[in-house]
Measured scan of single mutants.
Amino acid sequence: QEEEKEIKRLAKKFNASEEEARRAWKKAGGDPETAEKILKKKG
């Protein structure tokens, strides 16, 4: 599933848990760029 792959990639890229990545993904409405910004800010 595309979403799961994206979440795993985000978690790995930002050294975050999949739970954090999933939360960022949901907050971003499934937009990878926005999710990255959220995780970057958090990191």
Rank of each mutant, 00 (worst) to 15 (best):
E20T: 05
R22H: 04
T34Y: 12
K40T: 13
W25F: 08
N15P: 02
K37V: 04
I38Y: 10
P32I: 15
D31T: 03
S17I: 03
K13P: 01
E36A: 13
E6V: 10
E3Y: 12
L10E: 00
E19A: 10
E18M: 14
E3C: 05
A24H: 01
L39F: 03
K13D: 06
K40E: 15
E4T: 07
I7W: 08
K5G: 09
A24T: 02
E6M: 12
K41N: 15
E20P: 00
I38P: 00
P32S: 14
N15C: 08
G29L: 10
K26A: 13
E6P: 03
E19C: 09
P32V: 15
K37M: 08
A24I: 05
E18N: 07
K37W: 09
P32E: 07
A35P: 00
K13R: 09
K26V: 12
F14D: 01
A24L: 02
R9W: 09
D31F: 04
A21S: 04
K42G: 15
E20Y: 04
E3D: 14
I7F: 03
K37Y: 08
E33Y: 13
K12G: 07
E6Q: 11
E36Q: 04
K37D: 12
N15K: 09
T34S: 10
K5S: 11
G29F: 08
A35L: 03
E36V: 04
A24S: 03
G30H: 05
A11F: 01
K26W: 13
L39T: 01
E36Y: 04
K8H: 11
K13W: 07
E20K: 04
E2R: 09
K27P: 01
K40R: 14
A16V: 14
K27W: 11
Q1G: 13
A11M: 10
K13Q: 09
F14M: 10
E2H: 11
K26R: 12
E36C: 07
N15I: 03
R9I: 08
A21F: 02
A11E: 04
A35G: 00
G43T: 08
K5A: 13
S17K: 05
F14A: 04
E36I: 07
P32Q: 11
N15S: 08
I7T: 02
F14E: 03
I7A: 02
K42P: 13
A24R: 00
A21Q: 00
E20C: 06
K26Q: 15
S17Q: 03
E2T: 10
K41M: 10
S17D: 06
G29M: 09
G43Q: 14
R22Q: 06
